[in-house]
Computed example of a mutant assay.
Amino acid sequence: MSSQSDSPSIFSRIVAREIPATIVAETDTVIAFDDIAPKAPVHVLVVPKTERYRDVVELAAADPALLAEVVAMAARIADQRAGGEFRLVFNTGEAAGQTVFHVHAHVLAGDLREGTLADA
């Protein structure tokens, strides 16, 4: 499926280097960058470079190998930044907090035991 509109998502614009971001990892198909409004000591977004999938459900159904690459990159980032302990969040749908309809994972790490991450 395609994204909500014909214009590129903010993530596609980051991939194209039209919008600056602090990129922490990248492959031919996936990019990871620091969240601009972090909800945890470590908060990195891992994003497939394609806009083809709105959410993780679409991605899992259509391209499980790409989903596995997203998860593997998240694990590598957590190994580097948080000793391998992390939370991986995919918001699916507006009511669940998804604001960019280009599938992406939030890698959250650090001491997450206090407070809530309702708006990650």
Results as ranks from 00 to 15, higher is better:
residue 48 P to G: 05
residue 84 G to C: 11
residue 113 R to P: 00
residue 62 A to L: 06
residue 87 R to M: 02
residue 71 V to S: 12
residue 76 R to W: 00
residue 86 F to M: 15
residue 84 G to P: 13
residue 42 V to D: 07
residue 69 E to F: 02
residue 91 N to Y: 04
residue 50 T to H: 07
residue 70 V to P: 02
residue 50 T to Y: 04
residue 104 H to D: 09
residue 49 K to G: 11
residue 57 V to A: 14
residue 94 E to L: 06
residue 79 D to Y: 01
residue 110 G to R: 10
residue 61 A to R: 14
residue 31 I to V: 15
residue 65 A to D: 15
residue 34 D to N: 14
residue 105 A to Y: 02
residue 34 D to R: 15
residue 55 D to S: 13
residue 106 H to A: 04
residue 37 A to C: 06
residue 89 V to R: 07
residue 61 A to G: 11
residue 28 D to N: 13
residue 29 T to M: 00
residue 30 V to N: 03
residue 29 T to A: 14
residue 96 A to W: 09
residue 54 R to S: 09
residue 100 V to M: 06
residue 41 P to C: 05
residue 110 G to Q: 10
residue 68 A to E: 12
residue 29 T to Q: 14
residue 77 I to R: 07
residue 60 A to H: 13
residue 96 A to Q: 12
residue 66 L to S: 12
residue 63 D to S: 13
residue 32 A to H: 10
residue 88 L to C: 14
residue 40 A to T: 05
residue 56 V to E: 06
residue 64 P to V: 11
residue 99 T to R: 13
residue 76 R to E: 15
residue 46 V to T: 12
residue 50 T to W: 03
residue 97 G to N: 05
residue 98 Q to L: 04
residue 41 P to D: 10
residue 65 A to I: 00
residue 108 L to K: 06
residue 42 V to P: 10
residue 38 P to V: 04
residue 62 A to P: 03
residue 64 P to I: 10
residue 30 V to E: 01
residue 50 T to D: 07
residue 28 D to R: 09
residue 103 V to F: 02
residue 74 A to Q: 09
residue 65 A to F: 02
residue 109 A to H: 10
residue 27 T to E: 02
residue 107 V to D: 07
residue 61 A to Y: 00
residue 84 G to H: 11
residue 113 R to C: 00
residue 62 A to Y: 05
residue 62 A to S: 15
residue 45 L to D: 11
residue 40 A to S: 14
residue 91 N to T: 08
residue 34 D to M: 14
residue 73 M to H: 08
residue 29 T to R: 15
residue 109 A to I: 12
residue 38 P to C: 06
residue 54 R to K: 15
residue 79 D to C: 01
residue 88 L to Q: 02
residue 37 A to E: 14
residue 57 V to K: 13
residue 59 L to P: 11
residue 80 Q to N: 11
residue 38 P to D: 05
residue 63 D to G: 04
residue 73 M to D: 09
residue 99 T to C: 01
residue 52 R to P: 00
residue 37 A to N: 15
residue 41 P to S: 06
residue 40 A to Q: 06
residue 98 Q to G: 07
residue 60 A to K: 13
residue 100 V to D: 08
residue 103 V to Q: 03
residue 39 K to R: 15
residue 88 L to T: 00
residue 98 Q to R: 06
residue 71 V to H: 13
residue 44 V to A: 10
residue 101 F to I: 04
residue 57 V to I: 14
residue 89 V to C: 04
residue 65 A to E: 15
residue 58 E to G: 12
residue 40 A to P: 10
residue 115 G to V: 05
residue 32 A to W: 07
residue 73 M to A: 11
residue 66 L to P: 12
residue 96 A to D: 06
residue 63 D to R: 05
residue 105 A to F: 03
residue 67 L to F: 13
residue 66 L to N: 09
residue 37 A to G: 04
residue 105 A to L: 03
residue 49 K to T: 11
residue 100 V to P: 05
residue 83 G to V: 06
residue 30 V to L: 02
residue 89 V to H: 04
residue 112 L to R: 08
residue 28 D to S: 14
residue 52 R to Y: 00
residue 69 E to S: 10
residue 33 F to L: 13
residue 36 I to L: 15
residue 57 V to L: 14
residue 41 P to V: 04
residue 52 R to V: 02
residue 97 G to W: 06
residue 43 H to C: 11
residue 35 D to W: 09
residue 36 I to S: 11
